[in-house]
Nucleic acid binder design. Sequence first.
DNA 1: GGTAGACCTGGACGC
DNA 2: GCGTCCAGGTCTACC
Length: 319
Amino acid sequence: MGSRLTIRPPTDYVLARDVCSYGYFLLEPNEWNPEARRFSRVLSVDRSPVLLTIDQPSESPGGALRARCDRTLTRAQQGDVRRAIARMLHLDGAGSAEAVAEFHRVDPRFAESGRGRLFRSPTFFEDLVKTVTSCNVAWPSTINMNRRLCEVIEPGFPRPAQLARRRPGTLRARCRVGYRDVRLVELAKLAGRRDSVLHPSNEAWLTATDVSDDDVLAALLALPGVGPYAAANLMQLLGRYAHLPVDTETHRHARAVLGYEGDAKRLTRLVHDHYESFGAHRFRSYWFELWAFYESKRGPAETWEKRTTGASFTASALR
DNA sequence: GGTAGACCTGGACGC
DNA sequence: GCGTCCAGGTCTACC
């Protein structure tokens, strides 16, 4: 039979728009079904896999979300699933209706579409692995690495303890993560240590409003495999939007959309200057501009098929 | 503080 | 079908 949950999202929440808002919705184990307009993935609940599906029957903003699990869960387990859903769909904090409205006051260009919420993973650790596997590779390689991690280690995405036990050589040979192998195992080991920022009990510190961006950024930069791009991207995944993860996509955007010219160093400086006026919302203004460009080329993200459009929407494929 | 080169994979290209 | 080249962000060594 399985468990069924009803989720009351923020009043402006639209499942199709707000799930299909960041590339990670296309990475395993996530699955968006464009026809059924339904999100699904395997979650790890008490170390056992649970297939979760979420839809929004009314499709109107703020309409109740219907979540179904393929097995019956205890009340405590249902609480875990609710927390995982809230994190993925960004139902509170920077994803609250008030926070999104504040973004629209600063950047009214996205008020009509309602864009402002970014999809993410059920755990910060999964976001971290997805970010590290997106560095120094084209998007199709990121897709492959995440697919293989789910095939080889754990269908609901490897938990830190599982990854920490693996030999780097196994990750390299079977998951094709290349030189990232040692770094991923180190990150997984850190996630098991209570004194590390990666320990789940410390996510509250990473997102606390009384902890400065500078302190969080410094803690992220100290992690193996995390440089300026990855750290800035992790900041946005924590709901801290004042930093820009500048990569080659950013440089393409600077040339093609913003009309800037010059080498990478100059483009980086111009991009930072360009988004300066958006203050604490810089990333959202940048990202939804970039996302609108992809959608202008490939159609609405909610129509993208994971294995076709979803694998070829980035700049390298659009050149 | 700035820069060059190595790291690894997969796709594009030429033969 | 095979070999070569290149793109991509992080890290280390060196100036």
